[in-house]
Computed example of a mutant assay.
Amino acid sequence: MTDTILKVKNLFFRYPNQEEDTLKDINIEVKQGEWTAIVGHNGSGKSTLARILNGLQMPTEGSVIINGMELSEEKLWDIRRQVGMVFQNPDNQFVGSTVEDDVAFGLENIGVPRSEMIERVEESIRRVGMKSFLTQEPHQLSGGQKQRVAIAGVIALRPAIIILDEATSMLDPIGRKEVIQTIEELRKEMGVTVLSITHDLEEASRADHIIVLNGGKVFAEGTPSDIFLLGEQLVQIGLDLPFAISLANKLKSIGVTLESNPTTSERLMDELCKLTYKI
């Protein structure tokens, strides 16, 4: 049975000077090695939850347990070593003058010996497909390349969980595809646990598990197929259905039913090819 690496129990959070809780009785579990997407419209509480999971905010009530450790002021830095975050704007994440300097920065901060640091920098950059950009200046990179370097900086620290906080929202389609492909490859190669915070159901469709937040509460959770069966309910809380789901629904409305409900564009193409073959 897959181990639980993250457990959130009866979590509440309220910002100072606010009358209402931003997060209300959140209960979730994340399994080791899985990709879990937390989705919701702006203001649903998903980014606040991400900051709590990395110890940037402390819960008002409830508990967060990561890799067997409960989040507290005393365990804060231990928790942060377990959780790496990739933020929305890649330009705000760079501190080094070159790609390799930037990836090495976090390792220097935690006192990793130089010989080990060199190995970790080279390995992490290779894993994200940026080996030929070692000495490149970050401002010369595309958006997708910058995020891949940011991911390299995180995996060099060897966290148990990587959180992507709207990490693809500012990228063009090519950059978004690069980052998602990188994450999928890292999961296969390293077994890393991924938690993506997003409002993009197209991106979330590639996850193993989806948690939907609405108004600071868990609205629904399940596999992508389970979640997309909610259809219009997702639209009503401000989410856009993935193209594959929308097209499949339109085909069904005119009497064309696919063998299975596709959750990604690739699966939609497979279903359309089957349909064409039958015709």
Rank of each mutant, 00 (worst) to 15 (best):
R81C: 05
R81K: 11
Q82H: 13
Q82I: 06
V83G: 02
V83H: 03
G84V: 14
P90Q: 13
N92M: 06
Q93D: 07
Q93E: 12
V95I: 15
V95T: 12
E100C: 09
F105M: 01
G106M: 04
L107H: 01
E108K: 11
S115V: 14
M117D: 09
I118N: 10
I125M: 10
R127C: 10
S132E: 15
F133L: 13
L134E: 10
T135M: 13
S142E: 00
Q147R: 04
V149N: 05
A150M: 06
I151A: 12
G153M: 09
V154S: 05
I155Q: 13
R158E: 12
R158Q: 13
P159L: 05
A160K: 15
A160G: 12
I161W: 13
I163F: 10
D165M: 04
E166W: 02
E166Y: 03
A167E: 05
M170N: 07
D172K: 05
P173A: 05
I174R: 14
G175D: 05
R176I: 04
I180G: 00
E184C: 04
E184W: 02
R187F: 00
R187H: 00
K188L: 01
E189L: 14
E189C: 01
E189H: 05
M190R: 04
G191V: 00
T193Q: 01
V194Q: 03
L195E: 01
S196I: 02
I197H: 10
L201F: 13
E202L: 12
R206Y: 11
